[in-house]
Nucleic acid binder design. Structure first.
Lengths: 156, 156
DNA sequence: AAAGATTGACAACTCAATCTTG
DNA sequence: CAAGATTGAGTTGTCAATCTTT
């Protein structure tokens, strides 16, 4: 039995700063998107994927693959968006089990209004402050952790 | 009227990787903490702050300052934790408007069990994969964005 | 009125269960 | 049974309103 391996001082600082930064940034981006366009970041993510897809239509499982959300989270999200008229669901003729999610004109209008604004928020709050080296390290950090998550051993 | 300034390709990649990484990591840390200790990350955060405080007691506004949460989020969180016996609220005699949040023995036991496990998860999923330079850049990234958030201009 | 704090209504997420078709 | 997808119950977070004390 070994005593717990705590984080080194630099790691502690980095971790606490990271946690605080993320929650603040996420909240701020959400507030702005909500205030300016009446969309949440989740709405935005779905709308972006649909707008980039051929015909503005995707199968739910494709959306799930891209977003990496829980299946039921996606279903609830789509139901809410449908109720607000941003998307509609259609039956899939090829596979009777499946369905399609289709961007409505209102949904397309929403994302076209929201995208430039949101990108501008991200640019100003994040990337305008970062040099190339820090940006590239950010990507390295993210991809490194993602790789570790994929091979994640359960708690032994 | 200028056309929107989109993100550069490296920025896009870094941003998308960052978003995906965070949501995956957050979910995984939450699942592990929940499975092993029956605590959420929010519970954990409150318990850490209380356990580091003198007498295991803090005023709600102090918790709010540290967590940077919305006032009502904190109040709801504390009510739930109180219902589960992790904390209790006491009246503040000095200031009739205020109250104290106090760690119970059960709350202290919970954080003492959870902390080493959770730190281990963070170490294994994150820091064991990062070299000193990347860790230091992570802190720089976080503090830079935090600084920008503090001077955040509204959407002009 | 402002500070400290709580409440209620509603929105969003998680987990487990369910339904339908392949 | 497995794949694609949805539903319902319970938890957590947000916003606006409220209450009490300074």
């Amino acid at each position: 039995m070994t005593s717990p391996r705590w984080l080194a001082a630099e790691e502690q600082r980095a971790w606490r700063a990271y946690l605080r930064m993320h929650s603040q940034l996420d909240a701020e981006l959400n507030r702005r998107l909500q205030a300016a366009c009446g969309l949440s970041l989740s709405d935005y993510e779905v709308l972006v994927l649909l707008s980039e897809a051929d015909g503005g239509r995707l199968r739910p499982y494709e959306l799930q693959r891209e977003t990496q959300w829980e299946q039921s989270r996606l279903a609830h999200q789509l139901s809410r968006m449908q109720k607000r008229g941003l998307v509609v669901r259609e039956k899939c003729t090829e596979d009777g089990r499946g369905s399609f999610v289709v961007l409505t004109p209102a949904g397309r209008a929403a994302i076209e209004t929201a995208a430039p604004r949101h990108v501008d928020d991200v640019r100003r709050l994040v990337f305008d402050g970062l040099d190339r080296e820090t940006t590239s390290r950010l990507e390295l950090f993210a991809t490194t952790v993602l790789a570790r998550l994929e091979t994640a051993p359960g708690n032994p």
